[in-house]
Design a binder for these strands. Structure first.
Lengths: 210, 210
DNA sequence: GCGCATACTAACTAACATGTTAGTTAACCG
DNA sequence: CGGTTAACTAACATGTTAGTTAGTATGCGC
């Protein structure tokens, strides 16, 4: 029998920490804080469970850090966006395009937020993030109504929610929808996701216009 | 000290079973199969954990039964619906109204389905249910396109998904959205839910029309 | 190449989860 | 009533999970 030399992988604290954070993010997006298994994170990060406690005190601390990382990423996205630039329809489309484009990268955010609301009663995250998405949409809808280019019977809060529903559902339900796109391992691939984006935008923009 | 007579509650196997099923349904909708805690179900059903195993063999068996109950309920909803009755817009609106109205009762279905896809890779449920919702919508969209009343650039699959997104998101995200309707303990109350429905329908129907 | 800091592991413990079992109490029927 | 069945409970057994700890190995400065 040939002797197999076991090559231990290179030591790299920063890389290991990042791998753990990444693994934790998808695991939390799968099962939420309570349901997440550190063992599964360790496997995904290619390290031992002990490493999680070595770098991140507890599962809860890790969870807080995952949230922080995601939210600080999200905060940048629509930073400095001017809701009054262009027509209401143009502005709304531009905004939703930014949000959805980012969502393909930041794909775990919606599910983790959903879990946060369902399982933890929003104990760990600030509602600021949510407001940061809904408020501009509502404002743009109101402007469109005032300018007479959007339907006057629009309830801006409910419509903002329904718009976000159309924008987020595809990303959140990727596992459930996968079988409808047979032969496509990841329906968040750029080509298909672009179709979703365009279709969503057409539905929404046409839907709010007079 | 006053002597307190402890009155043991009446014995009722059918009621207990129903209470367990109901409790299990919401617990599974909160955390999914793996994350759900039988202890929490027992508390919600006002019985002991042992009763769960007395009536339902295991957590997984209970889960299967919860799924079955929900799906057989869902199957009835749009039974015998004629997608060709009335104009495409009328038919689509009628269909979505039925689906959304039922969703207020069957409010755990979307979340349990979501979990099923994310956590269990759809191991326990048949994709038939999903198809039963998307196929009629796609068909109605196609008819509308052919008759020239719906936009010709509609991709019926993506649009059907985006439409369902608008319909389901409000229900699924009720915990996250609650704080936007301050002072409303349950945003699925009839009055508010009706507003959501009307707003969603307006967005969708306007959105698909030419 | 030697010593030292630190990345990392294996093997634990404690807490918590599900599932079991032996026994208790309530209801029902004669 | 009195006995039998079925609903239910408390305590236990078993397995799983988070977190700890004592020790090993690797890379790096000198």
């Amino acid at each position: 029998m040939a002797k197999t030399k076991i090559v231990s992988k290179q030591r790299d604290a920063e890389l290991t920490k990042k791998l753990i954070l990444d693994a934790a993010e998808s695991e939390f997006a799968r099962r939420g804080l309570l349901g997440a298994r550190t063992e599964d994170m360790a496997i995904a990060a290619d390290c031992t469970r002990a490493m999680i406690h070595y770098y991140f005190d507890s599962k809860e601390t890790l969870y807080r850090l995952v949230l922080e990382r995601m939210l600080s990423e999200q905060a940048k996205v629509a930073q400095g966006f001017d809701i009054n630039q262009g027509t209401p329809a143009e502005a709304l489309e531009r905004f939703l395009r930014i949000v959805m484009t980012d969502l393909r990268e930041n794909r775990n955010l919606p599910l983790i937020m959903l879990f946060e609301g369902i399982q933890n009663e929003g104990k760990f995250y600030k509602q600021i993030v949510i407001a940061a998405i809904y408020e501009p949409i509502q404002a743009m809808l109101e402007r469109g109504k005032k300018e007479g280019v959007f339907r006057s019977d629009i309830n801006s809060l409910h419509t903002a929610i329904n718009i976000m529903g159309a924008c987020l559902f595809y990303t959140m339900s990727r596992n459930n929808l996968a079988h409808m796109f047979e032969g496509t391992p990841d329906i968040l691939n750029k080509e298909l996701y672009d179709v979703h984006m365009e279709q969503a935008l057409q539905l929404i923009i046409t839907g709010v216009k007079n």
